[in-house]
Amino acid sequence: MDFGGINPVILIASLMVASVPILLAALGELVTEKAGVLNLGVEGMMIMGAICGFITAVHSGSPVAGFVGGALGGAALSLVFAFVTQVLLANQVATGLALTLFGLGLSSLMGQNYNGIKPPLTGALLPATLREIPVVGPIVFGHDWMVYLSILVVAAVWWVLKATRLGLILRAVGESHEAAHALGYRVRLIRLGAIAFGGALAGLGGAYISLVRVPQWVDGITAGAGWIALAIVVFASWKPWRALIGAYLFGGITVLQLNLQAAGSRIPVEYLSMSPYLVTILVLVIMSSGRGRAALNAPAALGQNFHATR
């Protein structure tokens, strides 16, 4: 059952865990971009979620409260972005980049006294008997609740965007804000909601890093995960299930390269270390080379500000 010294069951189980932060953040950004807003501050919102979640979990002793705190932290920072771009009509790209830098600095300040503290543990959700079933056990039943929640969120986002009135309005705002406005929808309010939702999911993803994956707080703990999430949205051509595939692909390669090293692979470490990024670039190139389809799927009003009196 092993390939080159690597057990595929364990590999799949661990890539599902490794992918949770980028998956959640990518989903949030997907919804934001579907509403026509390009928020490049994902990294900043993730790290705010990481520190807010960590602080909440440490003080309350409850990991669940920690995740709620993380989501609130991410959403709070995204509201800064929403205010600047939707009310003051500032450039979204510049504001998003500034948001990342601001988030990194602010989280570092907030985390000053939280170095070296252990957060409460988030355990596996299901009983051990289920987890011991061969193959299916570790892959399907062996995870903590956030892993299942992340997949549920994919399904929910897909369903809402595809099959509900809310999804239709959101997409209308993202495709043609003027038409949506003419129909009587409050474009900026809807966008505000989408931005806050994106921030909350990014914060949730960040909290997963500081509460489950590492689990501790250090400066810059997200280490670029937010940028990967942004790439995944494009990779997924704004489709939720493809975002899941993208996130698992990326998480899978990251886990695989460390496993290959541990299994004594003869491939030089440098190639393994850069492989996740290389594959991301390759996939993006391939996706956008088929002139049109991927590009066409981008929301038409992406990155444009809306003002009713224009």
Partner: peptide
């Protein structure tokens, strides 16, 4: 002995992933 090179002195996420990869390999 399995050696994993993290190429960092300090990156807890990467250090944790490295340890996890080793454990997955039966270390």
């Amino acid at each position: 002995l399995s050696v994993v090179w993290a190429f960092t002195w300090f990156d807890p996420a990467k250090e944790a992933d490295s340890a996890k990869a080793l454990i997955d390999q039966g270390v």
